[in-house]
Amino acid sequence: MLRFLVRRTLGAVVILLFISAFTFFLFFAIPHDPALLSCGKNCTPDNLKTIHHNLGLDHPVPVQYYLFMVRIFTGHHFAAGNCPAPCFGYSFANSEPVWPTLIDRLPTTLSLALGSMVVFLLFGLGTGMLAAWRRGSAVDKVLSSASLVLSSMQIYFVGPLVLALLVYNNHILDQPKYVPLTQNPVHWFSGLIIPWCVLSILFTANYTRMARSTMIEQLQEEHVRTARAKGMSGAYVFFRYAWRGSLIPIVTILGIDLGSLLGGAMITEWTFQLTGLGRLAIDSVTKTDLPMLMGVMLFSSAMIVLFNILVDAVYAFIDPRIRLS
């Protein structure tokens, strides 16, 4: 098991190296000079050249990439300001290093994404299993068609709708805002409840359908029939045997869905004016703040890679065939 995790982590490091190199070179393919931003209104070619030098833009791209990677560990003193390790670059638009900004925004996005994951797993898997348990009944039909309708609801449509109905017109819920969990758990919860629900609508619908179909499939497995042949009760067979087997496909899809969950979180942040990583990314694009954008991209891909290692570990936990091979 430990070997497995170590091997996966080594692999993850390689993947991250590839991602960083790819993003780095991608940015330099953009026909835009980041030095112009710091240059201001009275920009002369001489000024520009100095800034180029200060930013290290006069080096060839591979050297810049090398310096970028080294500075993550060593830190660097830019002309515009100090950037201690881990230094993921220096944002000239905000005049601050990238890393502290990322750390500052992370809790919002993490709260949003993980919270909505809890919501859609609870509701999605719950209703899916209920539909599978009562397969063919009216309950099954209602749940199945509801999930079909919900799966066509987009965040940017549902978000404003919910805001208008529940917050502005009827004042049932608070205006969404982020309060750190450590500061006030109740406000943290009440501030995020709307974004969680809106973000998880699509996922809930998908997981309902998936849980239903995998459960139905599992219930037809031969080992499930064997359990029934042993006289195990219906509920026992359902939860201990069929449910256990359907975890594998669900976890697999969950691992794949992480990327779109983060993407969804970004749209949600934008919809509800939450200051998370998503907002940061969108702002950086509009301001052409390349170091910041690069930081966000690297950071979110690292999160996805990390989470996938976690998913693999969960696999091994669920399935002894993986654990013991």
Partner: peptide
Amino acid sequence: SNRTLERLRGNRMAMIFQDSLTALSPY
């Protein structure tokens, strides 16, 4: 009833299936 059958299955009547790999739970 289901309950009666459950009490008999695995107790007074039991079954052996063909493919032991799929008929036993891997978990």
